[in-house]
Design a protein around this nucleic acid. Structure first.
Lengths: 149, 149
DNA sequence: ACGGACTATCAGCAGTACTGACGATCAGTC
DNA sequence: GACTGATCGTCAGTACTGCTGATAGTCCGT
């Protein structure tokens, strides 16, 4: 009965993750951003960071990060300046415009999430959240080629 | 508190889906297959299909399907023959070797899934499964550019 | 002052999924 | 039977993605 991969928990996770991801990307489209941009902005919300720090915290590749910062800069959400203390580094800081964009993205994403979770009651959502947290906390196995961010 | 995207249910779903997908792909590597090959084999388990039927049922692109069938044929898991009733079609049918490969893949995938769900008790897994099913049953919104298979 | 390490950047590569075009075949119409 | 339009599988070329490797600039310890 349960030997078909289709319909198994793991498969459902993959499928739902994929469609959820697509949903979020679509939700952000009006801002001209993708998920990674938001994630970077979120990190920058409080303190500026160097690009390599951003890479570490997001798991993104350094070359990808260059492009993401480029785009955020072009949107006026972020400023890139040479560090005064270490002139190798670029200090990336969020602009005011970046802050409002981050706020807008939060609205859009929350809305998309609500659509996604629509079939569940509030209590069920909490239960789901708790279960996912448990899974997420699991130490990922060592040689895992993580999916691109 | 909950306004950070990080740690929200939707985000967790995306992240877990991604790492679960990677896990499954890795699990199938010893067979020289990816998830899509297994999915095709699974459909062929009972009855042969034409390639376009396989496309319909999997959502894969027709050109991608050509490659997948090519690879499955090269592995000896599948046979491609001109249909006698409609000579435009290729009837794709699973070989015996394909059957055993499908069995092996089921073992590997189940194992990977067990690792993935390790942090949860059996009861919790059932609850998670039930919740995911509810979400999965949700009619996907109309203009959804579904993620590649 | 010098060798080694780190930072950001760029060009080029590999993988993926798709678009468009094509030959072969079918079904329906005249 | 010939013609038209549609379908099936295939392939070449395109667009996009994320990464590898190389490079210039900069720092730090000796």
């Amino acid at each position: 009965m349960h030997d078909r991969i289709d319909g198994q928990t793991g498969y459902l996770l993959v499928k739902l993750g994929g469609s959820a991801g697509a949903r979020f990307e679509r939700a952000l489209a009006p801002l001209g951003m993708k998920g990674r941009h938001v994630r970077v902005l979120e990190i920058l919300r409080n303190d500026p960071r160097s690009q390599s720090e951003l890479c570490q915290e997001t798991g993104m590749d350094r070359t990808t990060m260059v492009a993401v910062i480029d785009e955020l800069e072009r949107l006026g959400c972020v400023r890139r300046e040479r560090s005064l203390t270490d002139r190798r580094k670029h200090v990336v800081s969020m602009t005011e415009r970046g802050g409002t964009a981050l706020g807008e993205s939060a609205v859009l994403l929350t809305q998309a999430q609500d659509e996604l979770l629509a079939p569940l009651s509030a209590a069920e959502r909490d239960r789901l959240h708790a279960l996912l947290i448990r899974l997420y906390a699991q130490p990922p196995d060592p040689c895992a080629p993580l999916p691109p961010t």
